[in-house]
Computed example of a mutant assay.
Amino acid sequence: MVSRQRESFRFPLLAAIAAAALCGGGAAMAQTTTPDRLVPYFQPVTAGAKTPDADGFLQRWLLLEPIVKPNRSNSGFTGSYVRTALTTRYFPGQMTAVPRDGDTVTVATPLRWHALDAVPFDVKLFNFAQALSKPTYGVIFQAVTVITSPRERRNVRLAVGSNAASMWWLNGKEAVTLSGDRRMVMDDVLSPRITLNKGRNVLRGAVINGPGLSDFCVRFVDEDGKPIRDITVDVK
Score class of each variant (00 low, 15 high):
residue 3 S to N: 08
residue 4 R to E: 12
residue 6 R to M: 10
residue 18 A to N: 11
residue 19 A to V: 02
residue 23 C to L: 07
residue 34 T to G: 04
residue 38 L to K: 00
residue 47 A to Y: 08
residue 50 K to H: 05
residue 51 T to S: 14
residue 51 T to G: 06
residue 56 G to W: 00
residue 62 L to Y: 05
residue 65 E to D: 14
residue 74 N to A: 09
residue 75 S to K: 09
residue 76 G to I: 11
residue 78 T to S: 14
residue 79 G to H: 07
residue 81 Y to T: 14
residue 82 V to T: 14
residue 82 V to R: 01
residue 82 V to F: 03
residue 83 R to M: 13
residue 83 R to T: 15
residue 85 A to Q: 12
residue 91 F to Y: 15
residue 92 P to I: 09
residue 101 D to T: 03
residue 102 G to I: 09
residue 107 V to P: 01
residue 110 P to G: 10
residue 115 A to M: 03
residue 121 F to N: 02
residue 123 V to C: 11
residue 123 V to E: 02
residue 127 N to I: 04
residue 131 A to M: 13
residue 134 K to D: 15
residue 142 Q to N: 10
residue 142 Q to E: 15
residue 147 I to Q: 00
residue 155 N to Y: 11
residue 156 V to S: 02
residue 159 A to K: 03
residue 161 G to H: 01
residue 165 A to W: 05
residue 167 M to N: 07
residue 170 L to E: 05
residue 177 T to I: 13
residue 178 L to W: 11
residue 187 D to T: 02
residue 188 D to I: 00
residue 188 D to R: 04
residue 192 P to R: 09
residue 195 T to N: 05
residue 200 R to K: 15
residue 200 R to M: 15
residue 205 G to M: 09
residue 205 G to N: 07
residue 206 A to S: 14
residue 207 V to G: 00
residue 212 G to Q: 11
residue 212 G to I: 07
residue 214 S to V: 03
residue 216 F to N: 03
residue 217 C to F: 00
residue 218 V to E: 09
residue 220 F to T: 01
residue 221 V to I: 15
residue 224 D to R: 12
residue 225 G to A: 11
residue 225 G to F: 11
residue 227 P to F: 04
residue 227 P to Q: 02
residue 232 T to G: 07
residue 234 D to P: 00
